[in-house]
């Protein structure tokens, strides 16, 4: 019981660290691409650790499945929106790109 709690706390702290790192990246990085990188990569990892901690804390396989599906959907949605924002920015920087292809 004790070991389980210790592992939960460690996972939570690690998750919070990644969130903190991601936020720091968003605030400090110079351009949109590196900011996106910091936000989506670090936050997804942080959420993964927190999800693992919560799953361990609740300790039922059914709840764990639900928690990890939340993580999975967030992963999917955030990477897609990251891609879309990056694509928008790229087109804004080089507006001729798409028209030449068409």
């Amino acid at each position: 019981m004790m070991i389980k709690e210790v592992i939960t706390v460690i996972l939570l702290v690690v998750g919070c660290f990644f969130f903190l790192a991601g936020t720091l990246g968003v605030l400090r990085f110079p351009d949109l691409f590196s900011r996106l990188h910091a936000l989506t990569k670090a936050d997804n990892l942080g959420l993964g650790f927190i999800a693992a901690a919560m799953a361990l804390h609740i300790g039922s396989p059914w709840a764990a499945l639900k928690i990890f599906s939340i993580w999975f959907f967030t992963l999917l949605a955030s990477s897609t929106s990251c891609y879309l924002i990056a694509r928008f920015q790229k087109e804004k920087d080089q507006p001729t790109d798409r028209k030449e292809v068409e």
């Binding site: 999917l76 949605a77 897609t80 891609y83 879309l84 694509r87």
Partner: peptide, 8 residues
């Protein structure tokens, strides 16, 4: 226009 967006 985007195949990835459509699939998601």
């Amino acid at each position: 226009q985007d195949i990835l967006l459509r699939q998601v």
